[in-house]
Amino acid sequence: MAGTLRTDLRLHDPDAFYQSLIDAHRGLTDDQSQQLNARLILLLANHVGDREILAEAMAAARDGLAD
């Protein structure tokens, strides 16, 4: 489980992915949207499975938000 988060483009048709992400939230209240995001993170985290990669992803996501 050596990690190494891949940040090169891996999505086929990135615009379509981005749109589907926005669409998934359509019609939801802010609270419901937050719930969707939380579920999505959990599902994807389990799919990734590798704790090192997840830790790198969390660090990359947090980067610049707080010192």
């Binding site: 937050q34 719930q35 995001n37 939380a38 579920r39 993170i41 959990l42």
Partner: peptide, 24 residues
């Protein structure tokens, strides 16, 4: 805090149908 509560609820909501979430 509200984010922890969201994750907690998300785990519980997923647990009904998804085995991995039951373990969380």
């Amino acid at each position: 805090g509200s984010v922890s509560a969201q994750f907690r609820d998300a785990v519980l909501a997923l647990a009904e149908r998804h085995g991995f979430a039951r373990e969380l």
